[in-house]
Design a protein around this nucleic acid. Structure first.
Lengths: 107, 107
DNA sequence: CTGAATCCAATCGGATACTG
DNA sequence: CAGTATCCGATTGGATTCAG
């Protein structure tokens, strides 16, 4: 059995740290979308189909604070805003990929 | 860029399927614990430190319904109950491992 | 020991309307 | 277009008590 890095599930457990950030219905879906490249607010809203602007804004804001995504605002009219993953965000790719593999087996 | 299996983030997205099951503050922590082998209710309650019996019961029940864990009740007094991962649950190991790697880099 | 029951607060999340 | 504001219900989660 492969050893899992880190300590047992106490408050300093790496899984706990990760999930405190990644928890939430939409978070992983946002990251998955952004792994495909920069996306605009409306694009995310569309591809997540069902998310309310409130929740999308809330999650994007939190992910930005955690420095997992970066927000790029263009000072134009009408407004144009793009979101992209930071390096820290890109490092979530293995997580998303293994999740996708598992999710695919569910059928 | 490696291709992520599955479709875009619609209702049939594998990530969405996965997160519908794995969402929640404690779920991943339970699975992480059980990757180390069978655990009793009280052991989980202890190692998760802070979880209320209500939530622990709730999550365990859901995970059992999703066939990710299996519950083993011994007809003894006082009661003894153990939880262990099913095959489907064990297949989450890559997810937990990559999460642990990521969580460790946070510091 | 393993929960079930109850009560309550906070957060999540959806729908809608509105603004710069 | 990209949000903000508001209202509301559902769910999560914690604390505590109690039962088999």
């Amino acid at each position: 059995m492969a050893k899992i890095p880190g300590n047992p599930c106490t408050s300093s457990c790496p899984i706990k740290r990760a999930m405190d950030i990644l928890d939430g219905k939409w978070t992983m879906l946002i990251i998955r979308d952004l792994l495909g490249g920069k996306k605009r607010f409306g694009e995310l809203r569309y591809s997540l189909e069902g998310v309310s602007p409130k929740m999308l804004t809330q999650r994007l804001k939190q992910l930005e604070e955690e420095q997992i995504i970066r927000k790029i605002s263009y000072p134009v009219m009408p407004p144009k805003v793009e979101y992209e993953l930071t390096e820290k965000g890109h490092q979530l790719r293995p997580v998303i990929e293994s999740l996708a593999v598992w999710g695919n087996e569910l059928i």
